[in-house]
Each structure stands twice: as C-alpha cells, then as structure tokens.
Nucleic acid binder design. Sequence first.
DNA 1: TAGCATCGTTCCATAAACAGAACGCCAGGA
DNA 2: TCCTGGCGTTCTGTTTATGGAACGATGCTA
Lengths: 183, 183
Amino acid sequence: MTAEDGGADLAQAVGSRVRELRRGRGLSLSELARQAGLGKGTLSELESGRRNPTLETLYALSAPLGVGLAGLIAEHVDTKAGISVDGYGASTVLLDVVTAAEASTEIYRLTILPGPRHVSPSHGPGVRERLVVVTGRVRAGRNGALGEAGPGESLDWASDGEHSYESLTDGPVVAILVITHPV
Amino acid sequence: MTAEDGGADLAQAVGSRVRELRRGRGLSLSELARQAGLGKGTLSELESGRRNPTLETLYALSAPLGVGLAGLIAEHVDTKAGISVDGYGASTVLLDVVTAAEASTEIYRLTILPGPRHVSPSHGPGVRERLVVVTGRVRAGRNGALGEAGPGESLDWASDGEHSYESLTDGPVVAILVITHPV
DNA sequence: TAGCATCGTTCCATAAACAGAACGCCAGGA
DNA sequence: TCCTGGCGTTCTGTTTATGGAACGATGCTA
C-alpha cells in the first residue's frame, strides 16, 4: 500500500538523520542508547530504517542529540504532506491558516530550486504577500518592482498583479510566505 | 508549560493537537481515520493521549490534516525559546523547522493577548528573530530598541539579549515568528 | 600471543500499537 | 414509535516495537 511505502521511506530517512546526528556528536551507538534509555538493538534497527519508531522513542533520542523532536523529522515534511502548487522547481507547503474578522492569512513554506523564475498571476485586490527568507537568496515581488533578500531578510508586495520568485543561489531557496486575503 | 515532558505528557499534547487540527478542518474522527487509513480505535485513543503513536501513524495523519509532520509535534512549549514561560496571555505553536547546513530555523505562530509585555531572555549569540504580524498591532524587539508593526508588516532583531513582545490592540495579536539559530 | 573492553548486529520474550468489530449514544425520517 | 445512519469509545486478536541477552568483530594492553 502507498502508506506503507511512504512509511518505509520515512523510517529510512529518520534513521539516517539520527545516525548522522549521532556521528556528528561523536557518540557511539551504545553510548547514545544508554543516554536515551533505549536498547541497543532498538537503536541499531531504527538507524538502519528497519523500525517504525514510536513517538516516545523519538523523544528519548531528541534530548541527548540536542535537537528538538521536530528536528528529527523536519526534513521529510515536504513531499506529500502539503499542497504543491507548482511542481517543477518550486513547491509550497501550507503550514498554517489564521482567520480573523478582517482578513484570512495563510502561511506557507516555499522552496524554490535554481532555474527560471516562477511567475504567479494576480491574486485579486487587497491581497498582500510577505516573504521571509530562511536559506539562500531570492529575487521576488511584483513584476517591475522586484526586490532581493537573503537569510533573515524579507520582502513584501501587493499581489493584485503578476509577480514572480527566483532563486539567486546554486542551492534551493527556502522561505516563509505569508499571504493575507481581506474578507 | 509542560517543560518536563514525560512521555505520557507528550502523547497527551500530540493527541490534543491532532484533535484540534481535525476539528479545525471540520472532519469527524471516523472520516479522518478513513482518509488516513487508520482504525477508528487507533485514532480515538491517540487523540485522548492513551497511545504512543508510531512514526508511520503520525505520518498517515499529517497528509489529510494538511500539515507537515513537525506540525503535529506541537510540543514546543517552550523550554528553550522561553516565550510562553509566563503562560498567561501568550502562546507559541511550532509550525515548521527548516534545517540547513549553516543554520536551523523554526517557524512559530505566536499569539499575544492584551496585557503586560512578555519578556524573553537572551537566546545565545547569532540567533535572530523576525516577526510578521498577521492581526493586531504589536510592539516588540530588543529592549531599548523596540519597534511597532501592524498587519502585513514585520520586525526583526538579534535575540542575543533580552527582548519583549506586547500587544497594542484590544484583541489578540497573531504573528509568525521566525527564529534562526546558527549551527 | 592471550585477555579484555567496546563496538554494532541479531535473536528472543514481552508489552503494546494496530485494524476491525461490537457497542451505546444521538439525531432525523417514516 | 421504530428504523436507519453516523458518531466516538471500548473490546479483541494479530502484528510489531521494545529491552535485554546473546554473538562475532575490532582494537588495545600486557
């Protein structure tokens, strides 16, 4: 079944991530198992992707590895979990929606691969976007009034006109996109 | 709150988070179980905190709920960020974590109720925060260099010193907080 | 060389997470 | 009133994640 395929991939990915973090900390498998209060066998099979760990097991590992629980799984959130808008070279994952009296706001994680710029049509009157760059460098905004931003910086524009996004770096750009629609 | 986080508490927190997301989407328990390919009993006990779900189970839920896996781990309350330490009047929900070579970034939804300002201690060298306001008006930043922002606007500051957040409106302020930690 | 510690893997018995069925509850319709 | 259908919880048998005990491999010391 598809769920099991995805699960197997996921277990593999999380296992690799744990192994990578452990080695990065210079810990042996036995030592990490001891610190986390897990059996060595459990950790061995988890790291090699042959286990489907429980929440409790992951939590036990997060403390000695010095990362948050989300840090153990944060890499795999993208492919199926969210709504991919574009597909080739860019993807968006819906993180949150905030609804208030006067406006509704959607929060996305936007990933842009190097390549041609991505053009988005008008979103209607009153809609605004703000982009906070997490990694990489991006050129984005309304066509004719593009701006650039690097990690930690942000851009904003009214999106009632055609606008675009473009990676300026070799690697992927990750950014947080906040879109506000008036009600 | 929930700083000590026994495993049981964690299951409780994740269960509540799932239930909250499900209700927010207007889904019945049976319907979500069907979409996720899980048994109703599994989901019922998971939501009430009586299960210690596996990674695969959490993953199966993340897609129909439209959030990433990290979005289900709302546990981040808040040992290291310290934002909601006072508990009354402010809360943070972890939306996403992005890990890159040079930095790790966490995305939160921050809600601040009207009242006294919320003070957060230093987060260590190199840590930066950026706040994008969604609703309401906020005064925030490093103490001594506070800024103000309304819907769609943003503020940023280095958080290697005491900083604070304060609602300037009658209603709650909702904002997106992006915290970058160098590695 | 032998002796010993530590490494990561594999095997086993137990506890528990799972799917699905059975259950009681509450609504709306005939 | 009795159905019928959906809801969420509880129960039951099966599957599987777990801790711990083997195991062989490797490295270090005498």
